[in-house]
């Protein structure tokens, strides 16, 4: 898994590549949490994520909770059909806005 974080005005963009499983989720969580206090809104680009387990969902949940208390928004970008299925199955799908591209996500702020 590879994580890149870009800070923009009142917005952080997190670009993840690879798999988010219980081996990699800790690193993702640490990286995002280190930056999240600087922002009210998060764009999570998951278009290059091929696999996400419950450990990955746990990170999404944590990000959502942090941002929610600040009345901010979390937008997920480019999630695959399979990951969408997992999010539907677990009810997570209802809490995130989703777009196909980063450009579309930017328009939501």
């Amino acid at each position: 898994m590879d994580v890149r974080i870009k800070m923009e005005e009142s917005l952080i963009v997190v670009i993840v590549e690879g798999s988010i499983d219980s081996n990699t989720s800790g690193e993702l969580q640490t990286k995002i949490m280190g930056k999240i206090s600087e922002s009210n809104n998060v764009i999570l680009d998951l278009s290059k994520v091929d696999f996400i387990s419950s450990a990955g969902l746990r990170v999404l949940l944590m990000v959502y909770r942090q941002i929610k208390v600040k009345n901010g928004k979390v937008v997920l970008v480019g999630i695959s059909e399979e990951i969408k299925d997992v999010m539907t199955m677990t009810g997570f799908i209802n809490y995130f806005e989703m777009t196909e591209t980063i450009e579309e996500a930017n328009k939501l702020f």
Partner: peptide
């Protein structure tokens, strides 16, 4: 529990549930 707002969700047992459903 799956219908609860994410703020109130507990995460235990989610992985096993996902395995069963998949």
């Amino acid at each position: 529990e799956l219908g609860l707002p994410l703020e109130e969700r507990k995460i235990g047992g989610l992985g096993i549930m996902m395995a069963k459903e998949s």
